[in-house]
Design a protein around this nucleic acid. Structure first.
Lengths: 119, 119
DNA sequence: CCATGAACAAAATGTTCATTC
DNA sequence: GAATGAACATTTTGTTCATGG
C-alpha cells in the first residue's frame, strides 16, 4: 500500500462525480476544480486532468463524444470533448469510487493520527 | 503547493517527536512506526526513515552520536546511531513542525472536502 | 484566450544490494 | 537477524511545447 492517496485517484473521483452531474468537458472541469480548491492552496495541473480522463476511458468507464461549443457553429467553432458513462461505466465507476473512498478514509485516519501524536 | 503532504515530511515530524521523547535510533524508530501504522495498511520503507534522519541532520536540527547497543561491550558489539537536538535544534524543529502542521490541516481539509463532495 | 494533447524534465518514492556486528 | 547506508529502478508528478479554433 502506498503512503497517501494519489493525486490521480483523487481527481478521478471528482471527474466521475462531474460526469454523473452531466457536467462537461476537460477544460471546464479543470477550471471548476481550481476554483474549488484555490482556498486550499491546491491548483491541479492541467495535464493531470487530461491524463485522468484518458485513464477513465482506458478503464472502460467513460467514452468520448465531440461537439462544437457554441450552439451556433457560425458563432463558435471551438470543438470540445464531452464524457459519458459507457453501458457498464456507471457500475464500474461505483466500484472505483468505493475503492477510493476506502483509501480516503485510510488517509484521513493517518493524518488525524499524526496530528494527535505530534501536536 | 503540492497536492498532498510528502511522506518524507510526515515521517520527519514523527522522528522529531521521538527524539523529543529521547527515543532511539533509526531501526527502532522504523519498527515503532511500522507497528503503529500496521493497522492503517502503511509500512514506511526503511530507506525513507534513514533519508529523513539524514535530512534532519542536514537541516541542522539533529546531530548524531554513536554507541554500542548493549551495556556490556562483550555481550553486544552492535553499533547504533543516536540522534539529539543541536543547540538550536529544538527551536528549528518547532518551526518545522509548525509548517508541517499547517500542511496536515490543509490536507485534512481537502480529504474531508473530497468525501463530502463525492460520497 | 480556450481547448486538447503529447513530450519532456524533475522529484519522490520503492526495491535491491552492500556492509557490519 | 539487527542496524546503517547507498545505489538503482520506477512511478508520479510538474513544466513545457505543439496544434487548432
Amino acid at each position: 500500500m502506498a503512503f497517501m492517496i494519489a493525486q490521480r485517484a483523487f481527481i478521478k473521483v471528482y471527474l466521475i462525480t462531474m460526469v454523473e452531474k452531466h457536467r462537461g468537458y476537460g477544460y471546464q472541469m479543470l477550471e471548476d476544480l481550481r476554483r474549488d480548491f484555490r482556498s486550499h492552496g491546491y491548483s491541479p495541473p492541467q495535464s493531470e486532468i487530461y491524463r485522468a480522463l484518458h485513464e477513465l476511458v482506458q478503464q472502460g468507464i467513460l467514452y468520448r463524444t465531440k461537439q462544437l461549443k457554441g450552439n451556433d457553429p457560425k458563432v463558435d467553432f471551438q470543438e470540445i470533448v464531452l464524457y459519458h458513462f459507457t453501458p457498464d461505466g456507471a457500475e464500474k465507476a461505483k466500484l472505483y469510487k468505493k475503492q477510493v473512498k476506502t483509501d480516503l478514509d485510510r488517509c484521513l485516519g493517518m493524518l488525524n493520527k499524526a496530528v494527535y501524536d505530534n501536536f
